[in-house]
């Protein structure tokens, strides 16, 4: 038996969340007295994959088929299922990304496996059991779930596990094919449009997020958020009314009905802190709130707070951030 980790790429590099998954997989393998192998698909270079050695992965199965650079669920599932079989994997680790959660669910059906998404702990494996903790009720609680099938699939919450660098040596990359046919690519996207990630920071993967709410008064003031984000190497986000009014695109909207994030640092500017907003950001490690109303509910969930006018406070933060040595 072994542990298999699914590795996603973006622009040729391994996604940060996949490095977390690799580190997690290696730890699970050690606890079970076995080793972890990775399977990689998509937009990632072979050289990048060899670096998974640092996360304790010695072998990477890589299907370099061109069409896999785009996400085609059926093709992905087929490749991963074949890798599970080849490696006799009993635990499969994904990042809880759009792709990871999608493929994980299909794979669970195909392999008759148990699945837990949004996982926040390593498994407890005493007495041949396998219990993980997962985030539930939109960040308001955790649940311990026992996975009862022979094969267990976990999709781990982003930014919840450290990336280890204890491994030595490069991982060997083996080319791997599951015999994909045209039929597996029936759902190849007609068109893929990537956002302008000139800042280079993907919201779901970001360690620092600067977010603006209705308190910023209008889209013309967003340079405050963007400039601060730029200085801090952060991604930008917003509250729901801000995207509803089209001040910002919908994919930036965080909260109960938007994206859920868990960065190391979340800076909320002019956001009141409604419970539905908190649901999407409450597992951020450090929360900073800037609001002119000292009674704003967000302060109750904050680690640091400034009561003041965003239009005066944020420029001071940008100045201070510029002075940091990077």
């Amino acid at each position: 038996m072994s542990v298999l980790v699914f590795v996603e790429g973006l622009n040729g590099e391994i996604k940060k969340s996949s490095l977390e998954a690799a580190s997690y997989g290696n730890q699970v393998a050690k606890a079970l007295g076995t080793s972890a192998t990775a399977v990689a698909i998509g937009d990632v270079k072979e050289e990048a994959l060899t670096q998974l050695g640092a996360q304790g992965i010695s072998k990477v199965l890589f299907d370099g088929e061109q069409r896999l650079k785009q996400f085609v669920a059926d093709a992905y599932v087929k490749v991963i299922a074949a890798a599970v079989q080849k490696e006799d994997a009993k635990v499969v680790v994904f990042s809880n990304s759009n792709i990871g959660a999608s493929v994980g669910a299909k794979l669970a059906v195909r392999l008759n496996a148990s699945l837990a998404t949004n996982v926040t702990t390593l498994p407890k494996t005493e007495g041949a059991g396998f219990t993980v903790t997962r985030g539930v009720f939109s960040g308001k609680a955790f649940a311990d779930v026992a996975l009862t099938s022979d094969i267990k699939i976990v999709a781990i919450k982003k930014n919840s596990f450290d990336i280890s660098s204890e491994g030595t040596g490069a991982a060997t990359v083996e080319s791997f094919s599951a015999g994909l046919t045209d039929a597996d690519f029936a759902l190849l996207p007609k068109e893929t449009v990537m956002q302008d990630t000139s800042g280079g920071v993907l919201l779901q993967e970001a360690e620092v997020v600067v977010s603006g709410g209705r308190g910023l008064k209008g889209p013309e003031n967003w340079h405050l958020i963007e400039d601060l984000a730029k200085e801090l190497g952060a991604a930008t986000a917003c509250s729901k009314p801000v995207s509803d009014m089209d001040w910002r695109p919908h994919h930036e909207h965080v909260g109960q009905t938007g994206t859920t994030i868990s960065p190391n640092l979340y800076i909320a500017v002019g956001i009141s802190g409604a419970i539905q907003h908190l649901a999407g950001v409450n597992s951020s490690k450090v929360i900073v709130v800037i609001n002119k109303d000292s009674e704003a509910p967000f302060f109750k969930a904050a680690d640091y707070g400034i009561v003041g006018d965003a239009f005066e406070v944020v420029p001071k933060l940008i100045e201070a951030a510029k002075a940091l040595d990077k």
Partner: peptide, 29 residues
């Protein structure tokens, strides 16, 4: 079912908010 929910818990409470004076906002950084 293929999994069983065995226990629930709630996140730890935050330690409380540290306030910084708006005049010295740069101190936050």
């Amino acid at each position: 079912a293929k999994s069983a929910y065995v226990n629930y818990s709630k996140p730890e409470k935050k330690g409380g908010v540290k306030m910084i004076d708006a005049e010295n906002a740069g101190e936050l950084i």
